[in-house]
Amino acid sequence: MVSIDVWNASVDFPIFDAKSRSLKKLALGKVGGKIGSEGRVPIIEALHDINVSLKDGDRVGLVGHNGAGKSTLLRLLAGIYEPTRGSSRIVGKVAPVFDLGVGMDPEISGYENIMIRGLFLGMNRREMEKRVDDIAEFTELGDYLSMPLRTYSTGMRVRLALGVVTSIDPEILLLDEGIGAVDAAFLEKARNRLHDLVKRSGILVFASHSDEFLLELCDSAIWMDEGRMKAHGGLREVLTSYKGRDPFENLSPEMLERIGQSKVLSGNGGE
């Protein structure tokens, strides 16, 4: 049984190489976590008092401004950061997809990158060998897979990374924004695979600025603001108060049908 529990957790970063004087000015800024400087070493208080309890079947979207703590929260939930105060317990195999480039080596071939990336995401070699053909077919890269990754265009790299990521069987899937630099036809294909992936995974936490993706993949949401959870609840309610408008009102009927949200507030004009 997969679950993530976080109790009163805070994440504070010590900044060893910063001059505390110049940071005082920064502390007045609005972007980013609060910067404390009580001790000798300045500290960025990236998250405070986080209380989250997720279990099998949860599909959570993360929203908030830049520097609100979305990525840090994802890393807390992945177990990469253990809380500096409070505690956390993560049960299950975590597959974090924060940066499609990490663990990709430009000098080695696409096939080898598939293997390494898969191993990093918690698969073993035998499991990955079974998936290679499937990934090759999905990415449409053909003979390019035996070429070094540096010969790939940006879009081709994203295809490869998405192909690997969507082929694994994660128990806890953590997605950070940034899956979008692909052409439209491919995205349509990736969308289906992403849906399948989300269905296979036990828990999904997805940080994104794209309403469309959030509405498709998530059913609840957490609104992060200045390192705190400002709101936690149903996706529609949280998005409405975050954006100041109902995100559902501009959606096409097909889209609403696909995401299973039939409740339309007023007659809408499609696209």
Binding site: S53, M229, K230, A231, G233
Partner: peptide, 21 residues
């Protein structure tokens, strides 16, 4: 923290916090 909707994930079945980190 504003909570709009009581998710099934919320406080009810939640295990006790361990006494310390």
């Amino acid at each position: 923290v504003v909570s709009f909707l009581v998710q099934p994930t919320s406080t009810v079945e939640r295990p006790e916090a361990p006494p310390e980190a």
